[in-house]
C-alpha cells in the first residue's frame, strides 16, 4: 500500500497508457469486424477465406507476433505500434467470427418480413440486421476487451506493456507487491471496460436485456 502511494504517479501513468493502448485495438476490432463479418455471413467463399486467415493469425502466440511484426511493418522493435497492431489483429480475428455469428443469429423471417414491408437493403442493414446482431456483437466485444487488456502486459517484454512494466520491474527487484499491483490494476481496467461495454449495450439495445449471445461464441477459438 505504501509502495503504491509513493509510486502513484507511475502507476497512474501506466494505467492511462494501458487504457490508451488497449482501447485502440478494441475499437479497431469492432469497426473492422462489422463489414468483414457481414461479408463472411453473406458469402461462403469469403467466409472460408476469412476464417482460415484469421484462424492462422489467431493461433500465433502474441510474443512471437510482437517480435515479427517490426520486420513486416518496418517499425523499430520497441515501437508501441507493433503491440497495438498485433492486438488489433487478434481483436479482428475474434470479432470477425463473432460478427459472422451475430449476423447469422438474426432470424431469417425477420429479414424477410423487413424486405416485404419495403426496407431497401441498405436501410434494412442499418435498421434491422445491425441492431438485431447487436447483442451477439456485444458479447464477443466483451471477450475481445478482456483479452486485449490482459494480453497487453506481455508487450512489456518488448518494451511496451504499460502495466506489464510493473511485472518485469517487480520480478527483477524480487518485489512481489509491485507485481501484485500490476495484476490488480490490470483487472480493474478489464472490469471497467466491461462495465462500460455493458452500459453502452443497455443504452443502445434496451430490448436485449438478458440476451447473452450465441452459443457459437462459446467456443471462440475452439473450432476453426
Amino acid at each position: 500500500m505504501q509502495w503504491l502511494w509513493e509510486n502513484r504517479d507511475l502507476v497512474f501513468g501506466l494505467s492511462l497508457e494501458h487504457v490508451r493502448l488497449s482501447a485502440i485495438p478494441i475499437i479497431v476490432g469492432l469497426i473492422a469486424s462489422i463489414p468483414l463479418g457481414w461479408l463472411a455471413n453473406r458469402f461462403r467463399v469469403t467466409r472460408a477465406i476469412q476464417l482460415t486467415l484469421f484462424g492462422i493469425l489467431f493461433t500465433i502466440p502474441s510474443l512471437a507476433f510482437f517480435i515479427t511484426l517490426p520486420s513486416v511493418l518496418g517499425t523499430k522493435i520497441l515501437n508501441p505500434v507493433n503491440v497495438v497492431v498485433a492486438l488489433a489483429i487478434y481483436a479482428i480475428a475474434i470479432m470477425v467470427r463473432g460478427a459472422a455469428d451475430a449476423f447469422a443469429s438474426v432470424p431469417r423471417d425477420v429479414i424477410q418480413s423487413a424486405t416485404a414491408v419495403g426496407f431497401s437493403s441498405v436501410s434494412r442493414f442499418w435498421k434491422v440486421e445491425l441492431p438485431l446482431a447487436g447483442p451477439v456483437l456485444l458479447a464477443n466485444l466483451r471477450v475481445v476487451s478482456v483479452t486485449t487488456v490482459s494480453l497487453l502486459s506481455v508487450g512489456a517484454l518488448v518494451g511496451n506493456g504499460a502495466l506489464g512494466y510493473l511485472f518485469i520491474n517487480g520480478y527483477q527487484r524480487d518485489f512481489p507487491t509491485e507485481v501484485m499491483i500490476g495484476i490488480v490494476f490490470t483487472l480493474i481496467i478489464a472490469v471497467l471496460f466491461d462495465q462500460i461495454l455493458v452500459a453502452i449495450g443497455r443504452v443502445l439495445m434496451p430490448w436485449a436485456h438478458g440476451v447473452r449471445g450465441s452459443s457459437r461464441a462459446l467456443t471462440v477459438g475452439g473450432a476453426a
Binding site: 493461433t59 463473432g98 466483451r142 447473452r212 462459446l218 467456443t219 477459438g221
Partner: peptide, 13 residues
C-alpha cells in the same frame, strides 16, 4: 443461448 465465449481464446501471453 448460453453465455458467450466460455471456452476462450488460444492467444495468450
Amino acid at each position: 443461448t448460453a453465455p458467450p465465449a466460455l471456452t476462450g481464446t488460444p492467444i495468450t501471453e
